[in-house]
Nucleic acid binder design. Structure first.
Length: 476
RNA sequence: GGUCUCAUCGUCUAAUGGUUAGGACACCAGGUUUUCAUCCUGGCAAUCCGGGUUCAAUUCCCGGUGAGAUCACCA
């Protein structure tokens, strides 16, 4: 059997959003399931007007960040180079010439205005506009300055799509599509078919927006004498609120933005894969390798899925908890609060270990760790808002904190000794943990929550704890 | 408007011609924990509507309805 070759073929006209990632991911998974499979990146940069500076680099960076590696591509070359359509113009001309020679392509003699008036007439008569109804009798020879059109052969088609199942269309959707634009660049409609054939692509995985053009592509494959690849059409990912295709307006975010917000790539990949796909079991968390082992196109759902950030957040937490401390430490590097710069690696690892279960994203790191690295600002509102502590008088608070300060001054600052000291303090002050420990916790951290009190004190250290308790007693 | 596609808890989804329609997120309650988080237990909550086929339909068929896609010298 032929080795699988799949491709991701974006146009460099914008950023990489989750819909694009999913298409790329599924194509990549299919390729990686075959030991000899190849995944190819091809840039479809045939629209000069819409090209956005830097977006090709951005696409590449996004794929790399997510671990979706490709075997052939514009920046790494490969046996079918070049992988940039703007550099393959001669190839398209060659294939176009075949069609011209066979009488299956002709120069479009009409101006844009003329075509527009045909279109308007059709719409005023409530008919669908078809260019082929205006196909010229004796078109001029094509000199490259006008669009080159396909001379279509309208007919019905039945074809299979790995995701959508068996599909059908009638002849009324087949038209004389443009192959080469008047600027000499091919249209997507023509270029992707030529390139997929030249690059021996076996599976086309693409978004739903192409499904209605599929019959025209089938017609073109026939005219070119080509077998078509396997088709797999993905339903769209819908925006959070609405029911529309996910677009920038609906808050569709660049994947790199998610990474900058502290989402880890395993979680993003896992989440995006599970949008429309599952393996039929109750498993929710899939590693990259599990996805490769278990993915199949025929288990991809046909209806659009909404992008639910809550679920992504949960999944990110799940993945963070699964990381080893060293791995987490490496990934967290850019997320520490500024004050942590001075701290040594061991302390930071210790802190990270204590807060690992509490992180939903790496970006949570500053808010839940900053008091380990710098003086927190006392916020007595937190005490008065506390159901238990709010009942204490100022004097009671001062007395409890002073007792704590004295006891802790006599204590070795390791977690075990601290726990013993704290337990004894409960007895001598005759207080409940919910009151005494909460008060100490707030006085040294002024954070809404923190790890276990003894561990927290141990990291902050004896001197700093003393200073913070002193400050608290003074400001109470 | 033409064409195509889709339709299970609020969300992501599983399953089946006969099930108490399963799981996960979110939410609520309880347990554990000094707090928060984690973890554990429980709860809430769904087959779009109408016909037909059938002993039996959420599942198959037809028709509605709703949603999405497309109808470019964009991809």
């Amino acid at each position: 059997m032929k080795s699988i070759r799949t491709r991701f073929a974006p146009s460099p006209t914008g950023f990489m959003h989750v819909g694009g990632v999913r298409t790329a991911l599924f194509a990549w998974l299919i390729a990686r399931q075959d030991p000899n499979g190849k995944f190819i990146l091809r840039l479809e940069d045939t629209d000069q007007k819409r090209e956005v500076e830097g977006s090709a680099e951005h696409l590449i960076k996004s794929l790399r960040a997510l671990g979706i590696d490709y075997d052939e591509g514009p920046d790494i070359g490969g046996p079918y180079a070049t992988y940039r359509q703007s550099e393959r113009l001669e190839t398209y001309k060659r294939w176009a010439q075949k069609l011209i020679d066979a009488g299956r392509a002709y120069a479009d003699p009409f101006s844009a205005e003329e075509i527009e008036s045909f279109r308007k007439k059709a719409s005023s008569e409530k008919r669908a506009f078809l260019y082929r109804h205006h196909r010229p009798e004796n078109p001029p020879a094509w000199d490259g300055t006008t669009p080159l059109r396909f001379r279509s052969d309208p007919k019905s088609y039945d074809w299979h799509d790995e995701v959508m199942g068996d599909l059908h269309s009638g002849p009324e959707v087949i038209d004389d599509i443009i192959l080469i634009k008047s600027d000499g660049f091919p249209t997507y409609n023509f270029a992707h078919i030529v390139d997929d054939a030249e690059m021996e692509i076996t599976h086309i995985i693409r978004g739903q927006e192409f499904i209605s053009s599929q019959p025209n592509y089938l017609n073109l494959y026939e005219a070119l004498g080509l077998e078509h690849p396997v088709f797999a059409t993905m339903p769209h990912i819908l925006g959070e609120s609405g029911t529309k295709k996910l677009g920038k307006r609906d808050g569709a975010k660049d994947v790199l933005e998610y990474i900058n917000e502290g989402f880890i790539t395993e979680a993003l990949v896992n989440f995006i894969a599970s949008l429309g796909w599952n393996d039929g079991t109750e498993q929710e968390i899939f590693s990259r390798n599990e996805l490769i082992a278990k993915f199949s196109l025929d288990r991809v759902g046909r209806s659009g899925a909404r992008f639910d950030e809550q679920r992504l957040l949960w999944m990110n937490g799940q993945w963070i908890r699964r990381l080893t401390l060293d791995d987490l430490f490496d990934r967290a590097e850019d997320f520490w609060p500024a004050a942590a710069k001075r701290a040594d690696i061991e302390t930071k690892k210790h802190v990270l270990n204590l807060v690992q279960d509490r992180l939903k994203t790496l970006a949570d790191l500053p808010t839940i760790t900053s008091y380990f690295f710098e003086e927190p600002v006392p916020n007595w509102q937190m005490v008065s808002d506390n159901k238990q502590l709010g009942k204490l008088s100022r004097q009671e608070i001062k007395d409890l904190l002073t007792a704590a300060q004295n006891a802790l001054n006599e204590c070795e600052f390791d977690a075990e000794s601290l726990q013993n000291t704290l337990n004894k303090l409960l007895i001598t002050t005759d207080q409940k943990p919910a009151i005494l420990f909460s008060l100490i916790r707030l006085a040294v951290s002024w954070a809404p929550f923190s790890p276990a009190l003894n561990e927290t004190l141990a990291i902050i250290g004896k001197d700093m704890v003393n200073i913070r308790l002193q400050t608290a007693i003074k400001t109470a």
